[in-house]
Nucleic acid binder design. Structure first.
Lengths: 221, 221
DNA sequence: TAGATTGTTAATCGATTAACAATC
DNA sequence: TAGATTGTTAATCGATTAACAATC
């Protein structure tokens, strides 16, 4: 029996920090650094050096003791682990304010993603061109995902439509869904869902701020 | 010596789930439920019943054994803990695509927040009206926060401007900052920062999807 | 060699789950 | 009372930190 080579098991908390490391390495590279240390990289990424080293240890041994990390090399390795070697292709479902903002967001392309399709249900939106792409009807979603080879679907619809759209994306074969709709989505185990809920983030901030009274420059004199 | 009544110590992981419970209670209330169980509320919110009960136990004892939870009452208690008894006031700095989308996002008002100011640096944007509010110059930020009593600042600027804007928001007295700029922000301990990085979310999805090949309806026949 | 810095181990800390006594 | 469901305890699990031996 051929033993399945175990995919190196990277803890979720570590995976969630890799994009920040990658971004920080981009900054260091742009500043001309060829070499960095766990101290510098960690501080810039906003974590403890020990945590950075532990995180990187799950990926392999890319540093040199007494020396540090080669910036371009580490950058490439983390990019590879994240699956960014091949540009990932996205479809956005829901071309309202937020969908348009995302479609026009340069940061997405800069970080290795290609927007390949826009979908909406509204007849007055379908057929218009947004960010250089024609908006397609919901019925075209499955074909769009297949033809364009999209792997990730982004949901920017009202919450009432989110589960239906998720079902369509799953049936079409995406491996990941990023949703901005405040709703719990049920998907099969082999599909990954991440959720961004702006109002929830604000409520978490409200919890911490509530009852707090901050001293401010020039006040109370 | 008067003992300071300790603020009930709610773990961060619990705080982060409270908005989802609140939202789920809203749905249950809208459906006419007056009573719910940890089983139903948890399932709808996407967590385990035991975890929901543990979370609620940090807030107080709001359920009745053998019966369940009173929907309007629990809704009110969680809202109060989150500091939503008083509507929280927001300023948005950066009126680009994303800033406009947020300004026009009804979900923010629905969940208890009031947008009280918009700020940008671009001379051709300052003075225009977006979502019913005039866009003010960056120099007006401190006064705007003070006069309007804003407690939360939202940063939707390019990453290069984010730290400077954060410094201004902190000096102006906000207690919380929500940033969409992919950059680490340094703020004093008494200010809370939450960060939403769309490209990072996509990269985390790419990690999980990478190398995965999903079976799709109608394929392989 | 001496100094620097990684990779790893062990200790600590926090979060989640499972089980059940309390009690409606 | 019998059945249901909470609130809480103890066990498990995972993440972070601190310390240091390995090694460049």
């Amino acid at each position: 029996m051929t033993p399945v080579r175990a995919r190196p098991q990277v803890p979720p908390a570590t995976v969630a920090r890799l994009p920040a490391y990658l971004r920080t390495l981009d900054v260091l590279a742009a500043e001309g650094h060829l070499l960095t240390s766990s101290e510098e990289l960690a501080t810039r990424a906003g974590v403890q050096p020990a945590l950075l080293r532990k995180d990187l240890s799950f990926l392999g041994t890319y540093g040199r003791r007494g020396v540090g990390y080669d910036v371009p090399h580490l950058r490439e390795q983390i990019g590879r682990v994240l699956g960014m070697a091949v540009p990932q292709r996205l479809v956005v479902v829901g071309v309202g304010n937020l969908g348009r903002a995302l479609a026009g967001y340069a940061g997405i392309a800069q970080r290795g993603f290609t927007l390949v399709g826009l979908v909406d249900v509204a007849p007055d939106v379908v057929g218009t061109v947004v960010a250089g792409l024609p908006v397609r009807p919901l019925e075209a979603l499955a074909e769009l995902v297949a033809v364009q080879g999209a792997t990730i679907g982004v949901i920017t619809t009202p919450p009432s439509a989110a589960q239906h759209v998720a079902d369509l994306l799953v049936a079409a074969g995406v491996t990941g869904i990023l949703t901005f709709a405040p709703a719990v989505l049920h998907v099969p185990d082999d599909v990954d869902v991440r959720s961004v809920d702006v109002a929830s983030e604000l409520q978490i901030l409200a919890f911490h701020g509530h009852g707090r009274r901050r001293a401010v420059d020039g006040e109370g004199a």
